[in-house]
């Protein structure tokens, strides 16, 4: 009986995780520009992946699995922000984003604009 309840929780976690993964993919397709797409991909994706990993930890008995899952989730939480930051700055610097509909852009005019800084560093213009 207890086993069945545990397995039901595992199943629900797996479905919820996959659902968030699907939402991330849907967001990458539906949202308007690269920077907003990144919101969906980096966060909903991480949450979905974390939930599926949690389901694995609950399903298999033994602490070694739990330890590995915790390591994997911590690793995801550490790497996702770094990757998102790198892509975000690169996307902005490449001049392709943000798209129309952006209500406010503090970086556009200021001296901190990553595109301008990159070009100045390269000694062009």
């Amino acid at each position: 009986m207890l086993d069945q309840i545990a397995q039901a929780i595992v199943g629900i976690l797996a479905v919820a995780g996959s659902f968030f993964c699907l939402v991330a993919a849907l967001g990458v397709v539906r949202l308007p520009d690269a920077l907003t797409r990144m919101h969906a991909s980096s966060k909903a994706g991480t949450l979905g992946c974390g939930l599926v990993l949690l389901a694995v930890a609950l399903f298999f008995p033994g602490l070694d699995v739990v330890a590995r899952v915790v390591a994997a989730i911590l690793f995801l939480l550490l790497t996702t922000p770094v990757a998102a930051h790198m892509i975000g700055r690169a996307a902005y610097a490449s001049g392709e984003s943000p798209a129309a509909g952006t209500v406010r852009d503090d970086l556009a005019k200021g001296p901190d604009n990553p595109r301008r800084r990159l070009l100045e560093k390269a000694g062009r213009r």
């Binding site: 949202l31 308007p32 520009d33 920077l35 907003t36 902005y92 943000p98 798209a99 509909g101 952006t102 209500v103 406010r104 852009d105 503090d106 970086l107 556009a108 200021g110």
Partner: peptide, 8 residues
């Protein structure tokens, strides 16, 4: 509604 913005 999605309203993207870059904020300092």
């Amino acid at each position: 509604k999605v309203q993207p913005a870059v904020i300092a």
